[in-house]
């Protein structure tokens, strides 16, 4: 679910870069305030590799196919580190595989990184009382929010000459095709956190 080159107005692509740049600056500022920022570097590096590869893999959801988004997973596991990790992953996907576009990295960054941060905050606020529920909501909610932002960007950048109702109908089908992914990514976050708590607690989110 990446916006490609050539379909988005130039002004919108520039605004995407500005938005992602501001989000990156905010994240780096928050990371710098952490007691030991370097401690989370290996985890961020590993999750960048996971995001880069896993979100490029196609998952068949008949009658169509979808890509993993992992915005919730990235947010829960990395917190503020999710923003640079996602932007690096998107850049590598665009350069190495032509997945997404170079001019739309800013917009695609907002599509994935904003939900990742929201998922991080939701999980941090409610994990103490309802850890599993919080993990599930963060994972599923991240996908839903990514879908909503993607659809909003598509409709905002729609040329006036295009049939808007046909595009809206296509977007509805596209969103419905991602519903299994909404459930799957919620389960992924729950299972992942359970496995990490038993096998490698050092990789668990620390807030």
């Amino acid at each position: 679910m990446h916006l490609p080159d050539g379909l988005v107005p130039v002004g919108m692509a520039a605004a995407g870069y500005a938005g992602s740049g501001a989000l990156l600056a905010l994240s780096m500022n928050r990371i710098a305030r952490l007691p030991d920022p370097q401690a989370a570097m290996p985890r961020a590096a590993m999750m960048t590799a996971v995001f880069f590869a896993a979100s490029a893999i196609v998952v068949p959801v008949p009658p169509t196919t979808v890509h993993l988004m992992l915005s919730g997973v990235m947010g829960v596991l990395l917190g503020w580190f999710a923003v640079p990790a996602i932007l690096v992953g998107l850049f590598l996907q665009a350069v190495l595989f032509g997945h997404g576009g170079l001019t739309t990295i800013g917009l695609n960054g907002l599509i994935i990184a904003v939900p990742a941060l929201v998922a991080f905050m939701v999980y941090r606020a409610s994990a103490g009382r309802f850890p599993r529920l919080a993990a599930g909501v963060a994972g599923s909610g991240g996908v839903i929010l990514s879908l909503a932002i993607f659809a909003a960007f598509v409709l905002l950048g729609l040329p006036a000459q295009m049939d808007a109702s046909a595009e809206r109908a296509a977007l509805v089908v596209f969103v419905l095709a991602h519903m299994p992914l909404v459930v799957a990514e919620g389960i992924i976050v729950i299972v992942l956190l359970q496995i990490l708590s038993r096998v490698e607690p050092g990789l668990l989110p620390r807030g």
Partner: peptide
């Protein structure tokens, strides 16, 4: 490309696991 991606993820996971 798919093999390269799998190798990258495997290498990253192995390195991180050894680090921790």
């Amino acid at each position: 490309q798919q093999l390269v991606m799998i190798a990258l993820v495997g290498w990253g996971a192995l390195g991180t696991a050894l680090y921790f």
